[in-house]
């Protein structure tokens, strides 16, 4: 079983996440760039599905991701543009937060996300570098992600309890 991800803060505007997968680079690349595959895993906590997953993976191409809560129907998402695409090795995209119905500030300036894929002995390591326009933007994104996560877990807990009580 692969080791859990490693997160670090290389500077006060950046966050880096590194995770290895026990699969060749071609498969990991496909899972990251084909919408029908992305929809299968990029789901977040239980009770969330990807309601929109559009990706035109080439330099200048647009993407739109939206998630929907199957319990209360609330949605949020990300959208932006691919800046650089090097098949099997590197994707740079600009990402904007769309608060949808769950709130939080709409981002004024996008975060720049660089995803790199490296393979060694059949293991592919994916490094995600997130560069935010400011320290405040980074901390805000991290903080809201965390609270959303907790809120989502609580929603899940609520629905479990409700199911048990019924």
């Amino acid at each position: 079983m692969p080791k859990p991800l490693q997160a670090s803060t290389p500077s006060d505007r950046e966050v880096r996440v590194v995770r290895s997968f026990d699969a060749p680079r071609q498969l990991v690349w496909d899972a990251y760039t084909k919408p029908e595959l992305v929809k299968k895993w990029m789901l977040g906590p239980p009770d969330w599905t990807m309601s929109v997953c559009e990706m035109d993976v080439r330099a200048g191409g647009a993407f739109r991701w939206r998630w929907r809560n199957t319990v209360d129907g609330k949605e949020f998402g990300f959208f932006g543009t691919f800046k650089e695409v090097v098949a099997l090795s590197r994707i740079v995209h600009e990402e904007n937060y769309d608060p949808g119905d769950i709130g939080g500030p709409m981002s004024t300036e996008p975060a720049i996300i660089t995803t790199t894929f490296e393979e060694s002995n059949g293991v592919t390591t994916v490094t995600v570098d997130m560069l935010f326009p400011s320290k405040e933007a980074r901390d805000g994104a991290m903080a809201s992600g965390m609270t959303d996560g907790m809120e989502m877990s609580y929603t899940h807990l609520d629905s479990l309890c409700a199911a048990k009580a019924a």
Partner: peptide
């Protein structure tokens, strides 16, 4: 703090592990 934030990511990654298999 960082790990809590990325718990959701790790859940995604575990799903991706299964998909890759």
């Amino acid at each position: 703090w960082l790990e809590r934030h990325f718990e959701i990511w790790e859940q995604n990654y575990r799903r991706l592990d299964a998909l890759l298999e």
